[in-house]
Design a protein around this nucleic acid. Structure first.
Lengths: 139, 139
DNA sequence: CTAGGTGCAAAAGGTTTGCGGTTAA
DNA sequence: TTAACCGCAAACCTTTTGCACCTAG
């Protein structure tokens, strides 16, 4: 565990909002201005293979990293882009929901939900009258 | 639905093994030698937004495409790279397994399992003595 | 002295975009 | 005629790699 790796890890822990490598890089640079993006990638890779960090790769574009190494799924808000962690219910397993062939050995799984987060849902419900004037033409 | 889109769709249907865009491109070129990779990307995007094709983005590297628009999860074999479709069990929902906050509206979900597929598990069990001579240095 | 880690820059994919030309309604 | 689409090439973005330097054991 070198100084750079510690820095990257601390930067990741700073705010647990699933940052991309570039975001981690920017945070890390506040702590250690000389650090380079390549080093951040290297450190994230190292931390990931140590099991200290999880790499989340559920969308196009940059990978995201999270220090939460418990079993959990992710929820992406289609409106604001926030990522939430969803814990597994007690005594429930993904295998309960999907049909798995016999002799399939599962090493791990990645699960992502998409939708609208409570905050954005509230916002959308709060401002229905404003839509007459200017409708939001979102993708 | 232009000729190119039809060609791309047929190429995708040709073998339902979750090809990458480049693989679809190669298949499509057999049917229409003049087609370009950019057009394949465009067509896949169009088909995807029509709901005819699903884009699967659960790993680093190229996106994969599948014509299966039923609810299903994916299983990636760590050994041979095969992707299998896993159907949802009857009357089961992902929400049964993960703790979702109230007022979270789910539009859809993506689920991926990883492990070793039955074929590779069998192979590994069958040929333990050959590993002394020549180990396969795969990817 | 040696091994491993770092920083820089460049390369390597994978995907998207701009633009001129073509096609179909 | 007009709008959408295609093909090509270049751009773009994210990630990886090669290499020289540095540092700790």
């Amino acid at each position: 565990m070198t100084e750079q790796r510690r820095t990257v890890y601390d930067a990741l822990m700073e705010e647990r909002n699933h940052p991309t490598a570039v975001e981690v890089f920017m945070r890390a640079r506040n702590r250690m201005p000389s650090i380079s993006l390549a080093t951040v990638y290297n450190c994230l890779e190292t931390l990931s293979s140590c099991g200290l960090v999880k790499t989340v790769n559920l969308e196009r574009g940059p990978a995201r990293y999270c220090p939460n190494n418990q079993e959990h799924a992710h929820f992406y808000c289609n409106d604001c882009g926030t990522v939430l962690d969803l814990p597994l219910r007690a005594r429930r397993h993904p295998e309960d929901v999907w049909e798995l062939p016999e002799q399939l050995s599962i090493s791990h799984h990645e699960v992502a939900f998409r939708g609208v987060c409570p905050k954005c849902a509230m916002k959308a419900a709060q401002l229905p009258e404003q839509r007459e004037n200017a409708q939001n033409t979102k993708e």
